Computed example of a mutant assay.
Amino acid sequence: MFDIIKVVILSLVEGITEFIPVSSTGHLILVNEFIKLKPESFANMFSIIIQLGAILSVILIYFNKLNPFSHKKSASKKRETIEIWKRVIIGVLPAAVLGLKFDDFIDEKLMNPYVVMTTLFVWGIVIIFIEARHKKAKIKSISDMSYKTALLIGLAQCIALVPGTSRSAATIIGAMLLGCSRTVSAEFSFFLAIPTMFGATSLKIVKAILRGTPMSMWQVFLILLGTVLSFIFALIVIRKFMKYVKEHNFIAFGLYRVVLSVVMAIYFLIIAK
C-alpha cells in the first residue's frame, strides 16, 4: 500500500510538471529525497517509463490535428498536418543527435540537485526577462513556421539536455524569441515532445534491458499504474495549460522556478548536510 501511495505522488509530480516550463527533473529530484521507490535501479526505471503516459496524453489531445490519414479531414487540412510533422522532424534532429552522444555523460555528471537548482534559477530569470520584453508575435500557426525556425527551436531544445532547464521551457521560450505566439510555442513544444521523449525513454529502457535489470510482477504493476496515472494527470494539465497561455504570460512560471531553486538550495546545501 505504501508503494502505491508513492507511485501516486510521483506520477502526479510527473504528470503536472512534464509539459509546463518548471522542470519535471527538478521536482522529481526534490520529491525523491522524501519519497523514493526501492531499489534505486527500479526507481530510475519507473521515473523513465512513466513518461510514456505523459506522451500518450499529448497524442490523445491532438490526435485529430496530428493524424494526416483522417477521413474527416479535407485535403488542405491533411497537407497542413503533414507540414506540421515536417517541422517536428526537423526540430527533433538536434536533440536526437546530441542526446545519443551525451546521454551517459549527462546521467553521470549532470543529474544532481546542484546542477538542477542552478538551472532552475537561471532559466527562471530568463523566462521573466524575456516575457517582460515579449513583442507581438508574427507566427500564428505552426504551418506558418519556416523550416529554419523549426530547426532553431530544435537547437533551443538541446539546452534542456542539462537537467533542470526544462524541455518545455527551452522550446517555448526559444519559439517566442523567434516570433511565435505563446499558443503556437506551447503546441509546438508538445508536438516536439512526442518523438523527443519517446526516443529518450526508449533509449534508457534499452540500456536498462541490456544491463539485465530484473523486475518482479509487483514492480511491473507499479510501473503500469504510474504510466496510467501520469497519462491522466498530464491530460488534465495540458488542457488547463493551453487555456492559461491564451490569456496569461509565463512570468508566474519564472517566479515559481526561482522560488523552487531557493527551496532546493536551502534543503541540499543546509538541511541535508
Rank of each mutant, 00 (worst) to 15 (best):
A252P: 07
A75K: 13
S166H: 04
M217F: 13
K109G: 01
K136M: 11
K243Y: 05
K72V: 08
A175T: 00
I194A: 10
P214Q: 10
A54V: 00
V263Q: 07
S76V: 11
R257H: 09
V97L: 15
V88E: 08
L260V: 15
S70L: 14
T183Q: 13
K243W: 02
V13Q: 03
I59C: 10
L10S: 09
P21I: 01
L269E: 09
I266E: 08
A137W: 03
A200V: 02
I238Y: 01
L222K: 07
F221W: 10
G199I: 08
W123M: 14
R239M: 12
K38G: 09
I223W: 01
I271D: 07
I128L: 13
L28V: 00
S230Q: 04
S146I: 02
I90N: 09
V259R: 08
L93F: 13
F69L: 13
H27N: 00
W218E: 14
M176C: 01
L30G: 02
L110G: 06
R182G: 04
V8C: 10
A169V: 05
V262Y: 09
F69G: 08
A186K: 01
T118M: 12
I49N: 04
I125Y: 06
I82R: 12
L110P: 06
I48G: 02
G154R: 09
S74M: 08
I266G: 15
L177W: 01
P94H: 07
Y256H: 08
F129M: 12
N44A: 14
K6M: 10
G164P: 02
P94C: 06
H27F: 00
L110F: 15
A175I: 01
A169I: 07
V8E: 02
K204F: 06
